[in-house]
Amino acid sequence: MKNLTGLDKLPVGMTGKIKYMTESSNNRRRLLDLGLTQNSIIRNERLSPSGNPIAYNIRGAIMALRVEDTKNIIIELIN
């Protein structure tokens, strides 16, 4: 069984591969437009001081996203 988890559970410094999104509506498109498409690689760069939002490396850009938005993005952990 592969290691599937919400993006918000991706530990700092770790990398994951996006499998699917359970998010619907406009939010979904917004995240897609930023490059969070299926099979793209995403890395947790760092947490903000309070732990939310979290900064991710998406296709070479650092984007800060909130836990509320990322928990609906399902990823596969990569070692």
Binding site: N26, N27, R30, L31, L34, P53, A55, A61, I62, M63, A64, L65, R66, E68, D69
Partner: peptide
């Protein structure tokens, strides 16, 4: 409710 938030941290 707060809307979705995406903020780029430029180099």
């Amino acid at each position: 409710v707060p809307s979705s938030f995406a903020l780029e941290l430029p180099p």
